[in-house]
């Protein structure tokens, strides 16, 4: 049995490393530090353990042990549910909510990171085993196994790294104006603000941006309500929204220009800084749930051809 530790321990180390490497707490404050870190570290360690023991189980002809991987998949689906539920529960405490699409995206990411820990551990132990069979020195095999495990981890990390708004759209400053009580941004009607005092706050503390999609796919991404909510949440989260819970009129609003698909967003901020707002909007992750690729469809291609003719 002891010979299997050569496979299990490096796999366990690499799998856990892969999970820890993906753990960061930034402006999103998710996972929270230090309690969230501990629970995700523990789950990552368990995932790595499951991946690392798969090859030794096969060597021992314990084929039923593989069913544990199915159990693990079930377990990590539960992680997704746990994350979703937890974020859903705190949603009402947020000044500007994340929105269900953003929550789903975060929950999926946490599930995927555990699978990454399993795959990294599995690849590491498999490669070590293959090199040992090829009669290569044990230390060298462990080194090569960990090296390939690291390469696989980096590959998956790049693969699951999502795009940001800046990849699909340009973000520019927009002009806030009032037509009587009607609040407009670059001429697009946002809402009706009844009180003059509130209009003055919009004019003094309000900032607006126009998000201009780069192509038709981007138009579809940005039309998604969940994506817009995520942009609003990120902007409010990073710049500090100027509102309290009893001031619903100062909730950030993102509306779509129905003519060209551009999005205009208005937000009131304590210390307005347009460059910071543009940066926050550009850095918002593009949600998996909002991704559409109409240009890849037959209809999309036909529309593009017609446009070129015109």
């Amino acid at each position: 049995m002891n010979k299997h530790y050569v496979l299990i321990v490096p796999g366990l180390i690499m799998g856990t490393f892969a999970r820890v490497h993906m753990m960061k707490s930034d402006y999103r404050q998710y996972p929270t530090y230090p309690r969230g870190y501990l629970s995700h570290f523990t789950l990552g360690f368990i995932a790595a353990g499951l991946g690392a023991v798969a090859v030794p189980a096969l060597i021992e002809k314990e084929f039923t042990a593989i069913t544990f991987l199915a159990l693990a998949a079930q377990q990590f689906r539960e992680v997704r549910n746990m994350e979703r539920e937890s974020l859903d529960n705190i949603e009402i405490t947020e000044m500007v909510p994340r929105g269900s699409a953003y929550i789903e995206d975060i929950a999926k990411t946490f599930e995927a990171r555990n699978y990454m820990a399993i795959i990294t551990a599995l690849v590491t132990s498999t490669i070590i085993h293959v090199f040992i069979i090829l009669k290569i020195n044990m230390h060298m095999s462990i080194f090569l196994g960990m090296f390939v495990g690291l390469a696989v981890h980096i590959f998956i990390k790049r693969m699951i790294h999502g795009e940001e708004i800046s990849d699909i759209a340009d973000v520019k400053e927009a002009k806030i104006s009032f037509d009587g009580p009607i609040l407009k941004v670059n001429g697009i009607v946002i809402t009706n603000i009844g009180l003059q005092t509130q209009r003055d706050i919009f004019l003094s503390n309000g900032l607006a941006v126009e998000i201009i999609p780069k192509d038709e796919n981007a138009v579809m991404y940005l039309s998604n309500m969940g994506q817009r909510q995520a942009i609003q949440h990120n902007a409010a989260n990073q710049l500090g929204v100027r509102r309290d819970f009893d001031e619903p009129e100062f909730t950030p609003v993102a509306k779509r220009d129905p003519e060209n698909g551009n999005i205009v967003m208005v937000i009131t901020i304590m210390k307005p800084n347009i460059d910071a707002l543009i940066e926050a909007v550009k850095g918002t992750p593009l949600l998996e749930t909002s991704k559409r690729k109409p240009l890849d469809s037959v209809v999309g291609l036909r529309l593009m051809k017609n446009r070129k003719k015109v």
Binding site: G180, P181, N192, G194, L195, T197, P248
Partner: peptide, 17 residues
Amino acid sequence: GELSEKISKILDGVVHD
């Protein structure tokens, strides 16, 4: 304006003209 503001604060509503 005054009354609208007072009532909106009590009800957490938005004043529209």
